[in-house]
Amino acid sequence: MMEDRNIPTTLARSIPWVLWLIWKNRNSILYAETQVSQEKTFRDIREEMEQWFLLNAVSPRDNMERPCLQNNDRWLPPEEGVIKCNIHANWRSSTLHSGIAWIARDQDGNVSYHARDAITHAPDRMVAEIRCVIWALTSLNDIGVTKVIIASDYNEVMEAIKAPLQWPRHIGLLQQVIKLTEKFEMVAFEGEKTTANGIARDIARSVLRDGRFQSYLAMGGPSWLHDRIAREKI
C-alpha cells in the first residue's frame, strides 16, 4: 500500500503509525486494562506522522549540505552570498549564568555583526548550546540574513539538529530550531574545531569573566579581538 501511487500520500505515510499505535493500544489493554478511543487513536496517528516528517524533512541539497569542515584547524569562509555564523555557549553549571555569543562573517572574512548575551537556568551544556542556536537564528532573521551557516565546536548539537528524534530529551528545543530554519532560504549546520571557533568562544567567555551580563548586538567585530579577526580573514 505504501508503494501504491493511487493512494493519497498522507494515507500511505500514516501506515507505520497505524501499526505502531494499534500495538501500543493492544499493550494498554493487556497490561494496563485501559483502551484508547478510536477518535484519539486516529488523531494521534495523524499528529505523530506529521511531526516525524516535519522533523525529518529532506531539504534540497544546495540548502542544507556542505562538505564537512570540522577537521580544519583554522576558520574557513563560506561560499559567496552566504553568511557564516560561529556560535558558542560558555556553560559552567546549572546554578550560574551561561555566556553566549555569535559572530557573522561573509566570504571575505568581513564581520557583519556580532552579539553577546547571558542566559540562566541551563541544566547542562547541551541545553545552553541549543538555546544559543535559537537565539542566533532569531537574531539573524531579524536583521535580514537569508542564507547562513551555523558553526559550533559542540558537535553533539549539530548532530541533534540533523536527527532530532534521536534526542527525545531535547525535542522541544530542537523543534524550535527547525521552525526557525523555515524562515531562511538556506541554513546549514557545521561542526568546527575549537581552534576554528576561537573568536565566538572568547566573546562568550567574556560574559562571566568580565561580568558583562548586558546583552547587545553590534555591527562589525569587537575591537579587543580586531587583530585575531584580521589574521583569520587573511
Rank of each mutant, 00 (worst) to 15 (best):
L21G: 01
L165M: 09
L174Q: 05
N6S: 15
S223W: 09
G211K: 05
H121D: 13
L208R: 06
L69R: 12
E47W: 08
N141G: 06
Q176Y: 07
E3R: 08
P168V: 10
D4V: 04
L208G: 08
L11P: 01
A136N: 04
A89H: 12
P8F: 01
M1R: 07
N90Q: 14
D62C: 12
E185L: 10
A188C: 13
W224H: 13
T138Q: 08
A32S: 14
R43W: 10
G109C: 06
Q166N: 08
D117F: 01
N63E: 15
A218R: 10
T41L: 15
P67A: 07
E65D: 14
R125N: 14
R231P: 02
S139G: 07
V111T: 13
N110I: 13
P168H: 07
I171N: 03
R116P: 01
K193Y: 02
N63Y: 13
D227N: 11
H97P: 04
A32H: 13
A89I: 12
I150L: 09
I199F: 01
S112D: 03
S152N: 09
G109P: 06
L140Y: 02
Q176H: 10
K147C: 04
I100S: 09
T194P: 04
A200W: 01
P168W: 10
T9G: 04
R66C: 08
I199Q: 05
I134H: 02
E192P: 00
A101W: 03
P123W: 05
W135T: 13
I15D: 09
P222F: 09
R26Y: 14
N110V: 13
V127W: 03
C132E: 11
E159I: 13
I83L: 13
L225T: 05
R116Y: 03
V157I: 07
A122S: 15
L137Y: 05
V58Q: 12
A163Y: 12
H97E: 06
